[in-house]
Simulated assay, not measured.
Amino acid sequence: MKTNVKMKALKCAFPHTIPIMTGFLFLGMSYGIYMHVSGFSFWYPMLMAMTIFAGSVEFVCVNFLLGAFNPLQAFIVTLILNARHIFYGISMLDRFKGMGWKKIYLIFGMCDETFSVNYTADIPKDVDSGWFMFFVTLLNQIYWVLGATLGGLFGSLIMFNTEGLDFVMTAMFVVIFLEQYLKDKNHLSSYIGLSVSLLMLIFFGADNFMIPAISGILVCLSVARKSMEEKEKDIV
């Protein structure tokens, strides 16, 4: 009986993850190749994908591993990059009630894409919602781990010049920024981020500007919050 419940949930969850599979396999392989050309064995991207499972943080971790030991910077950057997960968790509190041991894994594996599916999916009444969300989470992580591992393995087979491949991380964040910029009607937050980052880069240099920039952006956004909310209302 339990097996039938799980299989029904798996069959229902899989179609929802197909678009995520294509993206995760491609980006995961890019990450694995990036790790390889940075001097790391395929074990690194595989284990990091299994234990960290946060794409943007995993890309940033390459620089952490290659640079000087700075746990404070690693903690602050990771916290800022994944602060949005706090709100994801709050939104899923009611849905995770009564999940038992599955709740622990659902919390761990709640990336952006998994949250989007589990929060918005119209789960059929005859499908167990707990197992549905579990398999969505598990499948998405499998895609990411598989992509990262294949990238790490195939990286050694690449014969062409991979110089500049580390720009994939920069390109990823640029795309995220542009998508957010095009989606928002009020671009004040974008201008604040760009201006503060440029100023901190000038004052502190490329190796030390990240934490001051993040701190400065948070302060400026906090000060400009009311003005931004009023402009947003006027636009709507």
Score class of each variant (00 low, 15 high):
L72R: 09
Q73M: 14
Q73Y: 13
Q73D: 09
A74Q: 09
A74N: 10
A74M: 14
F75P: 04
F75W: 04
V77I: 14
T78K: 09
L79V: 09
L79E: 01
I80T: 06
I80S: 10
N82P: 11
R84E: 04
R84C: 03
H85N: 12
Y88M: 05
G89K: 03
I90M: 13
I90K: 03
S91I: 12
S91D: 09
S91L: 13
S91R: 07
S91A: 14
L93C: 12
R95K: 15
K102H: 11
K102S: 10
K103S: 08
K103W: 02
K103P: 00
K103E: 08
I104M: 00
Y105C: 05
Y105H: 04
Y105M: 05
Y105A: 06
Y105L: 07
L106G: 08
I107P: 00
I107N: 00
I107Y: 00
I107S: 00
F108C: 02
D112Y: 00
T114R: 01
F115D: 05
V117R: 01
V117F: 02
N118A: 14
N118I: 13
Y119M: 04
T120G: 03
A121N: 00
D122F: 05
D122E: 14
P124D: 10
P124E: 12
D126N: 15
V127G: 08
D128E: 07
D128F: 06
S129E: 12
F132I: 11
F134K: 01
F134G: 02
F134D: 01
V136D: 05
V136C: 09
L138V: 07
L138T: 07
L139Y: 10
L139Q: 06
